[in-house]
Design a protein around this nucleic acid. Structure first.
Lengths: 204, 204
DNA sequence: AGGCCTATTGCACACTTGTCCAACAGTCCC
DNA sequence: GGGACTGTTGGACAAGTGTGCAATAGGCCT
């Protein structure tokens, strides 16, 4: 096994443990057991547990982002692209995605590397949406007086819906959360006279 | 010190520790040090650390709820009452309130008592909003085809905004989050022809 | 005053954590 | 084959955890 492969294998195992037990409860020994190796090996490749957790979280979150970007490239229609973003951000097929983000947010206070990673990816998502809006503005299909602010708010609201869906998975059907998010999206897009008008403040 | 006073003092100290260090990093010894007593005392009053954390979280969250209910009673005007709710739920004066909820959500997976408490209070907030809407419907000032669903969605969206405001406190001014939440609120209330129409699905 | 009862102490216990490290094993080069 | 190098091991280590418990202190009642 080359060093690169080994590193990747450790990150893989860490990811499985994180998804199974949550970030806070993932220990070096758990990861070692998951791989069937000794725990010392982990610190041979990663300076600290914080770094390892951050890198593992980075991988899933970055992959999610990359998959979304790839899917977006399939369409050049700005409004359709925004719809694709919503579909991907909801992550209806994974029930652990949002739990991981939740853990990362909460754990970030005590793990510097994880905090940095979580923030970087959050900003990447926000800027992706902002770019989507700007694209729509360039092609004249959207109007928006503050793309960054609107993008930030869209991310926030979707996070809130996903959060409650995770916290109350048994009370609220996941499909409901998705439907509502989609409904909000379409409302937020404010289809008016065939053009998309994204509002920075709801009260004009 | 009577047993009741001592219990309350322990909960008080736990609360201070929780706010300072986060729920996950709050230990029995920290609480004891905060009170200037021995750590054994804590387990004389609480069966487990999980129970203590749950009770401490219960206290803040219940107090927040009670304060909101008290403020609501000051107004009998349904629309005004909903506005009051929004103002209280944003919790602009406390910068730790949302962090505590975030910790509770994340930590709930590993602490049964905390999970139960967090869920109970979340449902209480949701049902408060639902009742507010039903009041408005009774007096004819609001129309809503699914008060519970709308209440759940309102809570979700506000949580999302508060969440991002906590995670990126330095990137996004708290006042912006509040302004947006308020803006969303007014939009959600959908003031139309002087009457409040609360939509269950955004797409009619 | 004496007895009792309970709050409170301080510590022991078993266990887990991240981190580190001396020893071992495998492989590749000379 | 022998040596050097590096991946890998397994365990040591100190610091932490929740939990239980014998011993103490302190006040209250009789």
């Amino acid at each position: 096994m080359t060093p690169e492969q080994r590193r990747a294998a450790i990150v893989d195992a860490t990811l499985r443990v994180m998804i199974r037990q949550g970030i806070a409860a993932s220990t070096a020994r758990d990861v070692a057991a998951e791989m069937g190796t000794s725990s010392g090996l982990i610190h041979h490749y990663f300076a600290s547990m914080d770094d390892l957790l951050a890198e593992a979280f980075d991988r899933v979150a970055s992959d999610d982002l990359a998959r979304t970007v790839a899917a977006l490239d399939a369409s050049s229609e700005p409004v359709e692209r925004l719809a694709i973003f919503f579909a991907f951000y909801i992550r209806a097929d994974e029930d652990w995605g949002m739990q991981l983000w939740l853990d990362a947010w909460s754990e970030a206070a005590r793990r510097p590397a994880l905090q940095q990673t979580s923030r970087r990816l959050n900003e990447a998502w926000q800027s992706l949406v902002a770019d989507l809006i700007r694209d729509g503005m360039r092609s004249g299909e959207m109007t928006c007086d503050a793309p960054d602010a609107v993008a930030w708010r869209i991310i926030s609201l979707l996070d809130g819906l996903a959060l409650q869906a995770v916290a109350h998975a048994d009370l609220v059907a996941r499909e409901d959360a998705n439907a509502w998010a989609r409904g909000y999206a379409e409302d937020e897009l404010a289809l008016e006279r065939g053009a998309l008008r994204l509002r920075a403040s709801h009260r004009a």
